[in-house]
């Protein structure tokens, strides 16, 4: 197990290296002189030359890459052109809202979708099942921003239960933090609830036909325990896989939600960086997202061995 973990961790290094190369080339291969691009439309030639020297753009490509990578390893992600701050500082400041939103969304999603899928499978063909599946189709079809604006209209403007937008730091109180997150999390979770409920239903339905379910019933086990202890545990591997993917997609997908609800997280940071051609920030954010993807995949793979003793690496 430890051996496997080490092997998997080592395997992430080449993946991240490839990602780094692409991110590095992102700036270098964009048409035009990066220095001129960084300096902006109104810069003088002297200013451009200064930037070029500062960033080492005169050196050969490989040397530039070495310098850039070395800086990253020292925690130096460069300086933002637009915010005029260290990118690392920007990210630290923006990561809490994004992580909060993603976590709350995923918890909300799982606690709605999994029971929904299990009950739907157990009562296959009933009105409850049909309702769930109907919701699934609907959830897939409505874009997040439509749901978001709809929720704001009903719960913030009409009922005034939740704030329209913004974010409270968790250090300023749990309730304020949660109150600001509920609507965006709800908006984000709809599509994932639709997806995960469907997956859970299919997966549990398959397991319910297995012989060991019959064995459990022959033992005189109650239906609830048959479902949870025998069916759900065996159906868990595909469900956990999609939850993992959902989480990864979520972190990438917060861009839209954060814009709608004006939450100052990485999503908004990305939008601002892109609009202002703030390359160091874009590079850092993309690098961070990639790292999160790789790590989530690792966690999913490791979770298999816990969920199913037959899976050993």
């Amino acid at each position: 197990m430890v051996f496997y973990l080490l092997k998997r961790l080592l395997a992430t290094i080449p993946v991240m290296l490839v990602v780094a190369v692409f991110i590095f080339l992102l700036l270098r291969l964009t048409p035009g002189d990066p220095a001129a691009m960084i300096a902006g439309d109104y810069a003088s030639d002297a200013q451009i030359a200064e930037i070029r020297e500062k960033l080492g753009l005169d050196e050969p490509m490989l040397v530039q890459f070495g310098i850039w990578l070395g800086n990253i390893f020292q925690g130096d992600l460069g300086e933002s052109f637009f915010f005029k701050k260290q990118v690392s500082e920007l990210i630290v400041a923006r990561i809490e809202p994004t992580l909060s939103l993603s976590l709350v969304t995923i918890i909300l999603t799982v606690s709605i979708a999994v029971p929904m899928g299990v009950i739907s499978a157990y009562k296959q063909g009933s009105w409850l099942d049909r309702l769930t599946m109907g919701f699934s189709v609907l959830g897939f079809s409505i874009p997040v921003f439509v749901i978001g604006f709809g929720l704001i209209y009903v719960f913030s403007l009409k009922l005034a239960w939740f704030p329209v937008q913004g974010y409270d730091r968790i250090s300023e109180g749990l309730w304020g933090w949660l109150r600001h997150l509920i609507l965006p999390a709800l908006a984000l979770s709809v599509i994932f609830v639709a997806f995960i409920a469907r997956m859970t239903r299919t997966s549990v339905l398959e397991v319910l036909g297995e012989d060991y379910i019959r064995t459990a019933r022959a033992k005189g086990q109650t239906e609830t325990k048959v479902l949870v202890r025998h069916a759900l545990r065996n159906a868990a591997v595909p469900i956990v896989t999609v939850i993992g993917f959902a989480f990864a997609i979520l972190i990438g997908g917060v861009v839209v939600t954060e814009s709608v609800f004006n939450i100052p997280g990485l999503g908004l940071l990305t939008v601002d960086a892109v609009l202002n051609r703030d390359f160091p920030t874009i590079q850092a954010v993309v690098l961070l997202f990639s790292l999160v993807y790789v790590l989530i995949n690792l966690v999913i793979d490791l979770s298999y061995t816990v969920l199913d003793p037959r899976i050993r690496y």
Partner: peptide, 24 residues
């Protein structure tokens, strides 16, 4: 019926691999 299953009547099946829960 649940009380009777296991205590007064019990059953074994054809496929011993699939009749046991693989993750327990």
């Amino acid at each position: 019926l649940r009380d009777l299953r296991g205590t007064r009547m019990a059953m074994i099946f054809q496929e011993p691999m699939t009749a046991l829960n693989p993750v327990a």
